[in-house]
Computed example of a mutant assay.
Amino acid sequence: MNIDLTFAVAPFGLEPLVAFTLTPVSGADGLFTLVGAGTTESGVSAPKMFLLDAAVHLPDYAPALSDEQAATIGLTAPSDAMLLVVATPGDAGTTVNLLAPVVVNARTSVGAQFILEDQDLPLRAELARR
Rank of each mutant, 00 (worst) to 15 (best):
D29W: 05
V25K: 11
G74T: 12
P47D: 00
T33K: 09
T94K: 08
S109P: 02
A37P: 00
P89W: 02
L58E: 00
A46Q: 13
G30C: 05
T72H: 05
A92Y: 12
V110G: 06
L14H: 09
D120P: 00
L127K: 08
K48E: 15
A19S: 12
S45H: 12
I115H: 06
G30E: 10
D4M: 00
A87M: 12
L116P: 03
L121S: 04
A128C: 00
G13Y: 08
E117G: 01
T33H: 14
A55T: 15
A106D: 12
T76I: 15
L5K: 06
D60R: 11
P122C: 03
T108Y: 10
S109V: 06
L98A: 07
R130E: 01
L52I: 11
T6N: 07
K48N: 05
M82T: 14
E68N: 10
T40R: 10
V35S: 07
D4Y: 05
P89Q: 02
V110D: 02
E41W: 09
P78R: 07
R107Q: 09
V9A: 11
M1T: 14
V104S: 05
S45N: 08
T21H: 10
V9Q: 13
P89Y: 06
V103R: 04
G111V: 07
G111Y: 04
L14Y: 12
Q113R: 09
A37C: 04
S109A: 12
Q113M: 08
E41L: 15
A106K: 15
P47H: 08
V102M: 12
F12R: 13
A125N: 01
L121I: 11
N2E: 11
V85A: 05
G38S: 07
D80A: 13
V110L: 09
E126H: 07
T88W: 04
L84C: 04
I3C: 05
R124L: 00
V103Y: 05
A92L: 10
G111S: 01
F12Y: 11
P122L: 03
L99M: 13
E117M: 02
E15K: 09
T88H: 07
V102R: 10
G90K: 10
P47V: 06
G74C: 01
A81T: 13
V9W: 05
Q69E: 11
V102F: 14
V103K: 09
P16M: 03
F114C: 00
H57N: 03
L17A: 07
V18T: 15
P89D: 04
L83Y: 06
D120A: 12
L58S: 01
V102Q: 11
P78N: 13
A19R: 15
L121Q: 10
L127W: 06
A54V: 12
A81Q: 13
G30R: 14
V9S: 12
Q113P: 02
A128I: 13
A87T: 10
L98Y: 08
D91Q: 08
L5F: 08
G90H: 10
A128H: 09
D120K: 07
A19G: 01
T39D: 03
Q69T: 14
T76P: 02
Y61H: 04
I3Y: 14
F7S: 02
N105L: 04
A100I: 13
L121P: 06
G27D: 08
V104A: 02
A8W: 01
G93D: 01
